[in-house]
Amino acid sequence: MAKRIEISGLHAYYGAVHAIEDISMTVEPRSVTAFIGPSGCGKSTFLRTLNRMHEVIPGARVEGKVMLDDEDLYGSDVDPVAVRRVVGMVFQRPNPFPTMSIYDNVAAGLKLNGVRRKSQLDEIVERSLKGANLWNEVKDRLSRPGAGLSGGQQQRLCIARAIAVQPQVLLMDEPCSALDPISTLAIEDLIAELKSQYTIVIVTHNMQQAARVSDRTAFFNIAGTGKPGKLIEIDDTSKIFTNPSEKATEDYITGRFG
């Protein structure tokens, strides 16, 4: 199921603004890769180039190559809709569909893909909610609006929604930044479980979180305001946090950073 992502020579722009510059890296399957770095260094931008969500912003464009196993996501005949079907995403702020019930939120992606049979939908919704560690909390109120849940529950609902369509890669952009510590812990546990099936990329501001949940860590930095963000290094998480190759990484991790 899970796929390897190979990025080479990737640039992203917002109109005339060069947001990230020349990024190359490999994201391993069935593992968690964390992106860390100061605010504004392009972590979110980079993450969104991996499922072609970057280009939905007016004026935004991407150069370079992103290979999902053996297929270039930016190939000329590739439909971004198909890309997003296999590369799922969880956003910084929980964003369940406000007009839909909990059940319909989870089933939304399935219905797009032609799953119509009630029994099959029921089964996948239950499996996904269980997968997102939310089933026990919501099983009695599946028909209630998703917006009525707490922030942490909403975020897990969004994870359930994303995994319901069984993507090959799961991108998470600071999924815990809007949550309390207990919900954060619940989601970290969940990530640890999910990595047996998915390729997971998580952006985080929280160094401890990166250290706790990830197998590999990529550090991004920016030379100054207005300059494009760059990948400084990517390595095993243990190595990045104990013995990074780059001085900038060490400075950032030990907090000696502006």
Binding site: L68, D69, D70, E71, D79, V81, R85, L112, G114
Partner: peptide, 12 residues
């Protein structure tokens, strides 16, 4: 199986 990306159905 070779292709990683599914096709978006003709109906959609």
């Amino acid at each position: 199986e070779l292709k990683s990306l599914p096709r978006v159905s003709a109906r959609r």
